[in-house]
Simulated scan of single mutants.
Amino acid sequence: MSRDESQSHGPRHVAIIMDGNGRWATMRGRPRLFGHHAGARRVREIVEACPAAGVDYLTIFAFSTENWRRTQVEVAGLMSLFRRYIMKEMQAFVKENVRVRFIGDRPRLDAKLRGLMDEAEAITGHCTGTNLTIALNYGGRDEVARAVKRLAQDVAAGKLRSDDVTEETLPRYLDTRVLPDPDLVIRTSGEARISNFLLWQSAYAEYEFVDTLWPDFTPEEFARLCGAYGRRDRRYGAVKA
């Protein structure tokens, strides 16, 4: 689908910064991890809402390269949650025809989690429905730095000429090289910043910053935002005659 054709339709690729789990739990007098578990349950509902909204690709920001700065208790709890989530949801994703991918810098993650990530990608590799990409130990600047390093190695090895490096070349080295760029980026919880998420890919994305905390973000609100995207006038730097 061309850019002009997509203007009258909803977003094909939606990326979500799932913010507000900790605050949601604190407001209820519960530990932050309680909110993260509630947020994980919400993911399933939004994935299930994608087909009706016309969304083929959903990318969610699960854990950033900066999140290691949180307390050891919270980080350990999140890693445990990720392992349990993948084990619990793998067969459901296959049944629902959801293809799962992960982006981010994997080596820092523990071996068991990396193994589960590999397994989830393998057993859903044949699925042709919603494409769910989970950003885990991901940072936009880190991704670009890793991509540039690989590109430089190819130039040094003679696989690529430096004169051939263009803005179309770099995306082939990004974690998202098999994905289309996001059309719509949503951030929940009332914060109005992109927090180092898909920096290169979101150059022409539309943004929605909503006050809803992630565990309260409903499929209905998701559908409303996707519908609003279809009414936006996207000119990509051009001026209509």
Results as ranks from 00 to 15, higher is better:
residue 5 E to F: 10
residue 6 S to V: 06
residue 6 S to G: 12
residue 6 S to P: 05
residue 7 Q to K: 14
residue 7 Q to D: 06
residue 7 Q to P: 04
residue 8 S to F: 08
residue 8 S to C: 11
residue 8 S to A: 14
residue 8 S to Q: 15
residue 9 H to C: 06
residue 9 H to Y: 08
residue 10 G to R: 06
residue 10 G to K: 04
residue 11 P to V: 02
residue 11 P to E: 04
residue 11 P to Q: 01
residue 11 P to H: 05
residue 12 R to I: 06
residue 12 R to H: 15
residue 12 R to C: 08
residue 13 H to T: 14
residue 13 H to N: 10
residue 13 H to Q: 04
residue 13 H to W: 06
residue 14 V to L: 00
residue 14 V to R: 01
residue 14 V to D: 00
residue 15 A to W: 10
residue 16 I to S: 00
residue 16 I to E: 01
residue 16 I to L: 00
residue 17 I to H: 02
residue 17 I to Q: 07
residue 18 M to A: 04
residue 18 M to E: 03
residue 18 M to W: 05
residue 18 M to T: 12
residue 18 M to V: 12
residue 19 D to N: 15
residue 19 D to I: 14
residue 20 G to N: 07
residue 20 G to Q: 05
residue 20 G to Y: 05
residue 20 G to R: 03
residue 20 G to I: 07
residue 21 N to Q: 11
residue 21 N to S: 04
residue 21 N to P: 00
residue 22 G to V: 03
residue 22 G to Q: 09
residue 22 G to W: 09
residue 22 G to R: 13
residue 22 G to E: 09
residue 23 R to T: 11
residue 24 W to Y: 10
residue 24 W to N: 05
residue 24 W to K: 11
residue 26 T to V: 12
residue 26 T to W: 09
residue 26 T to L: 14
residue 27 M to T: 07
residue 27 M to N: 15
residue 27 M to R: 13
residue 29 G to D: 15
residue 29 G to N: 09
residue 29 G to Y: 07
residue 31 P to C: 03
residue 31 P to R: 01
residue 31 P to G: 06
residue 31 P to A: 03
residue 32 R to M: 01
residue 33 L to T: 09
residue 33 L to W: 06
residue 33 L to G: 13
residue 34 F to I: 02
residue 34 F to V: 01
residue 34 F to P: 02
residue 35 G to Q: 09
residue 35 G to E: 08
residue 35 G to T: 03
residue 36 H to C: 06
residue 36 H to M: 08
residue 37 H to A: 11
residue 37 H to E: 13
residue 37 H to P: 01
residue 38 A to Q: 05
residue 38 A to W: 00
residue 39 G to D: 06
residue 39 G to S: 05
residue 40 A to V: 04
residue 40 A to C: 13
residue 40 A to Y: 00
residue 40 A to I: 02
residue 41 R to G: 15
residue 42 R to I: 04
residue 42 R to G: 10
residue 43 V to L: 15
residue 43 V to F: 11
residue 44 R to E: 13
residue 44 R to D: 14
residue 45 E to R: 11
residue 45 E to S: 10
residue 46 I to K: 09
residue 46 I to D: 02
residue 46 I to C: 08
residue 47 V to A: 06
residue 47 V to D: 07
residue 48 E to H: 09
residue 48 E to D: 15
